[in-house]
């Protein structure tokens, strides 16, 4: 299992745990046990689950298992895949921080823009590297 795959898989487990913890906070909000700003974490809950857990697990396993790119570079350009790891995780964490705080100070709005860019570049970097590996076995 390549190193970057181990990072993807372990991080994906952590996001699953984190998503369910945020889910507890959201449910607790509904019975009035947590502060009202917790309700703003609803998108964090969804994206920790679907991007942090599901998509990231897929990224790790696909990078490991898809048909090789070429004999001298079996998994393509690994740098792009590390870039995807940094972009998706950096973007997700910034989003979780900034989304509940948007409106308090202008800077959080810009952090959210940065988060969107990071996630977007992360996804594109992964797809860029993986695209040529999706082909019938040679």
């Amino acid at each position: 299992m390549p190193l970057v795959t181990r990072w993807f898989v372990r991080l994906s487990f952590l996001y699953l745990v984190a998503a369910l913890i945020v889910g507890i906070g959201l449910a607790a909000r509904h019975v009035g046990w947590t502060a009202s700003w917790v309700a703003r974490l609803s998108p964090t809950y969804f994206h920790f689950f679907m991007l942090g857990w599901v998509t990231q697990l897929i990224f790790g396993v696909a990078h490991w298992m898809f048909p090789n790119y070429a004999p001298d570079a079996p998994r393509g350009r690994e740098g792009l895949v590390w870039g995807a790891l940094v972009g998706v995780n950096g973007g997700l964490i910034l989003r979780a921080l900034a989304e509940p705080l948007v409106g308090r100070a202008a800077v959080w709005g810009w952090v959210l823009v940065l988060s969107a860019l990071l996630q977007w570049f992360g996804v594109v970097a992964f797809v860029w590297n993986t695209w040529p590996r999706v082909r019938p076995r040679r």
């Binding site: 998509t55 948007v102 709005g109 810009w110 959210l112 969107a116 996630q119 977007w120 996804v123 594109v124």
Partner: peptide, 18 residues
């Protein structure tokens, strides 16, 4: 579709920010 979905999401998120 992942790239398209991420593009849509990033556009919405940037608008939520600024």
């Amino acid at each position: 579709y992942l790239v398209l979905g991420a593009t849509f999401g990033a556009l919405i998120l940037s608008h939520k920010g600024v």
